[in-house]
């Protein structure tokens, strides 16, 4: 699998990841090499094998629907880059 710089730009957009222009070719080559290694998986026939999502094949644990967390907005917002009146601020989305 050969990954081109256009593919890198597309993936980076999907991941909302800003990349330096001069690194695009490097990422394309790295990702191509990694995908080449990954494709060794195709040596093995996995028809009919149940995909394994969890190492212990556990199911999601459920809990009763009751309030367990107290309001910690102030504490949690201490790490926020920009807040006002308890809200997280971002650039204007709707003009």
């Amino acid at each position: 699998m050969s990954i081109q710089t256009e593919d890198v730009l597309k993936i980076a957009h999907l991941a909302r990841l800003g990349l330096e222009q001069d690194r695009l070719a490097g990422y394309a080559s790295d990702l191509s090499n990694i995908m080449g290694m990954v494709e060794q998986m195709n040596q093995t026939d996995t028809t009919g094998i149940e995909p394994m999502a969890h190492p212990l094949d556990q199911v999601q644990r459920l809990r009763s629907d009751r309030v367990t967390e107290t309001d910690q907005r102030q504490v949690l917002q201490q790490n926020a880059p920009n807040t006002e009146d308890g809200l997280f601020l971002v650039p204007r989305v709707i003009d």
Partner: peptide, 20 residues
């Protein structure tokens, strides 16, 4: 830009692998 500046090269590679 926040993600581009905040993450280093290996983390970016793996995020892109995953997104791909």
């Amino acid at each position: 830009r926040s993600r581009g500046e905040g993450f280093g090269e290996e983390v970016k590679r793996r995020i892109m692998m995953g997104a791909y």
